[in-house]
Amino acid sequence: MSNEFVTRSLDEVRFWSRIMKEHSLFLKLGFRCEDTQLINEANQFYAVFEAIEMKANAFTVGTDPQTILRFNQEVHNAASHIWAFKRKVLGLILRCQLPGANNFPLLVDHVSREAFYFRNRLEELNTGRLEPLPDAIIDENVFFLRIMADHAKFISHLLDPSERKLVDQANQFSHDFDQLLFQAKDLESMRPQSQTAPLLDQFLDQNRVSVKSLRDFKKTARDLIEACRIKSIIHPLLADHVFREAERFLFIIDMFENSLTGKPVPALHNVMD
């Protein structure tokens, strides 16, 4: 137990509790007006993660590690419950029990994968069983490359079809990130032999270039949506949500790059004293 444990825990909880809170809102907006039970459950999860977010923001890096360990356990429980809720919703959609609702099955699967990732990260922190750097580099990139590919698909399908240029750009990003994901999966299946510093360094460099391009596209789309300059059914908060996740991925890539090359690791930007 150390300050590093506290710092990393607060960084994860502050980032992902906000994401979970927003997922609750997006799911609620996609339900039909008659789905009152599901809407109520989504509202409850929104309140739970808003309270977690506020509590996390009240802690500092000087907080007693045992307090943070107990807090992580509480958040782990909440993440497990919202994961189960998301999987329940996915099952209802795939069994055609919510006809006319507006949550894509892939979107619900996507947000459930993020809940499972968050839950596992808290487990790793509390048990001290963090992956070795080479494994973490591959696994985190496999996870986030799929997230980025999904985002491009969602943007394409939620833009108005008349926004042909933006739809084409989103589809191209979807294709590019599918290819990057396939490459990452190849590197994954070749390990441990693939886990050489030159290969991992090139892997990070290549992904960084593509994620920066997607991040910039998301920022442009977000700004246009907020200014009501393009036609879409994308909630402005969703546009900002996917932009923040791209920023998160870029930060993780840079952190891995610095660890791999021996450079100083940048301070976690979500943690404030």
Rank of each mutant, 00 (worst) to 15 (best):
S2Y: 01
T7Q: 12
S9N: 09
S9F: 09
L10S: 03
R18Q: 10
K21R: 13
K28R: 12
R32P: 02
C33P: 02
T36W: 01
Q37Y: 10
L38Q: 10
E41C: 04
Y46P: 05
Y46D: 05
E50Q: 10
E50T: 04
I52D: 03
M54V: 14
M54K: 15
K55Y: 04
A56W: 11
N57T: 11
T60Q: 09
G62Q: 07
P65M: 05
P65Y: 07
Q66M: 15
T67Q: 13
T67H: 06
L69P: 00
R70P: 01
E74R: 03
A79P: 02
I82K: 01
I82D: 02
I82S: 01
W83N: 07
K88N: 13
V89I: 12
L92V: 13
I93D: 13
Q97I: 10
Q97E: 15
L98N: 09
H110G: 09
E114F: 01
E114R: 01
R119H: 12
L122I: 11
L125F: 14
L125S: 10
L130S: 14
P132H: 09
L133I: 11
P134K: 12
I137P: 01
I138Q: 03
E140P: 00
V142M: 00
V142K: 06
F143V: 02
F144H: 11
D150Q: 08
A152S: 13
K153L: 15
K153R: 13
F154N: 04
S156N: 09
S156D: 11
H157Y: 04
L159E: 09
P161Y: 13
S162V: 10
L166G: 00
V167W: 10
D168S: 07
A170H: 11
H175P: 00
D176W: 01
D178H: 09
L181M: 08
F182V: 08
F182Q: 12
D186I: 06
M190I: 00
Q193K: 11
S194K: 03
S194P: 05
Q195N: 02
T196E: 05
L199F: 05
D201S: 12
L204M: 08
D205L: 05
V209D: 05
L214E: 10
K218R: 10
K219D: 04
A221Q: 04
D223A: 06
L224H: 11
A227W: 06
A227C: 03
S232G: 10
F243C: 02
F243I: 00
R248W: 09
E257D: 12
L260S: 08
P264T: 11
V265I: 15
P266L: 11
L268G: 08
V271E: 06
V271W: 03
